[in-house]
Amino acid sequence: MKLIGNLIKGISFFRFIGFYIWKLIQANAFIAYDILTPKLYVNPGFVNLPLRVKSDFSVLLLSNLISMTPGTLSIDIVEERDELLVHYLYGNEEKIVEELEAIQEMVLKLVKYPV
């Protein structure tokens, strides 16, 4: 039983690493395109993300990953870990919240199986 848990954890860990690297390349391509072309496409604003992860490590992982994804930067944790304040450069609020929820789902799946 423990073996199966470790196996699932290992697989989701490698998926997480691959996801991180893919997001990293995407983010840098976005930023490079925006800086190099003469017109700036930015449409900045703030959005509040309700937090479903609770432990220290998972909040660190989530905010780190949000900072590295294209166009979003985690600013602050407000109201005793209830919400995460995120600054975005592109797009509108609904799309950003949808993407961030997908990332949070990934982190939840990763920390679900303790060693």
């Binding site: 840098n28 930023i31 800086i35 900045p44 590295m68 930067l73």
Partner: peptide, 13 residues
């Protein structure tokens, strides 16, 4: 134009 957008550039790139 503002500090938050500059922070995007310095952090990622």
């Amino acid at each position: 134009k503002d500090l938050y957008s500059r922070m995007h550039s310095t952090t990622k790139a």
